[in-house]
Design a protein around this nucleic acid. Sequence first.
DNA 1: GACATATTTCTCAGATATGTGACATTCTCT
DNA 2: AGAGAATGTCACATATCTGAGAAATATGTC
Lengths: 184, 184
Amino acid sequence: MKDTKQKIIDAAITIFNEDFSAPLENVADVAEVTRRTLHRYFADRQDLVNACQNTMQESCRKAMEEVYSNFENPLERFENMLYAAIDCGVKFSFLHRLHNNEHHSHSQHNNDCKNYDRTFNKFKSTLDELKNAGLLDASLTMEWIEMLVTGIVTAAINSEKAGNVARTNIKKFSWHSLSRGILA
Amino acid sequence: MKDTKQKIIDAAITIFNEDFSAPLENVADVAEVTRRTLHRYFADRQDLVNACQNTMQESCRKAMEEVYSNFENPLERFENMLYAAIDCGVKFSFLHRLHNNEHHSHSQHNNDCKNYDRTFNKFKSTLDELKNAGLLDASLTMEWIEMLVTGIVTAAINSEKAGNVARTNIKKFSWHSLSRGILA
DNA sequence: GACATATTTCTCAGATATGTGACATTCTCT
DNA sequence: AGAGAATGTCACATATCTGAGAAATATGTC
């Protein structure tokens, strides 16, 4: 049985991902609690948003580091980082958007940003390894490949939500399309 | 000089795409008008949202039909539909999200939905042509490919916004990644 | 200058969202 | 059964958003 606080955070991530200014009532509904209970755990909207940030951050960081330590081969690392990102699902893309939209000035001084960078750098350095090994298509830029990965994660999430692609196929297809799309 | 009404609609598409429940004040700010002026053109929030819908609908439909009539070859059609979708940018992905999120029950009876389907079917039928010509990787499903395309359009939009991929390269990279990702 | 039209400014009332206090109810242990 | 914690209910104060009227100001046209 998931504890209430976590249930609220999960609901908030779901709702805020779709509609960042949605009323807290909607979050409470999805979490199956009262608005009053929500406020027992979170002082105000900002407090809840921060909790979402931390949860997403921690979840993604853990997933990335696990892959990083479990695989040596750059190509395997890369493939499994894609799978990890898909598993983190909404958390991954939501976090990505938060740190890259125009209203957010990404700064090294901010602690959230530092954590985000640390996590995402694990991913970038793996990409660099691939490049140095000559495995990447040289006509593409690193920046495009980063964007493409998040685009494919988005596709995977949408497929999952829409339910029109067999669950067991989603990761397979994602890697199929990504690897052919960027490897030499 | 763009007329005010259109300016407001464009601002609304930008803002609502990022934050669907954002206050109208934000829309007015981006459109560089007063909230009062906004209300002289649009009765209420819903009215504005509808106008956005229509604009996006029309813009995408026109772009798709133009490609459809200008190209005979299925592969060229497909490639140029991708470019058209990227040109429509936010309009394309926003529209797609509106018709595919969980709070929207997509129905053939609704006129908006009918238009959306008609536009999107142009795209699907082109995909079918490719499949029948044996050009698609047989291990992938049509549904996945549809999702992938919108994912790549998202990647293109984000690249454009972030400005870290040369403008002239975005379409090239998009097609490169998409075509290798799905063609046999 | 006179005129029509578009926009801003200021204003306000109603609606909706937010956060909290007081107390009732339910759940969970032992 | 009964203590204690968690949650729900209800009422309330406050803040923000929304939509609209009225008058002032700008913009363009003849």
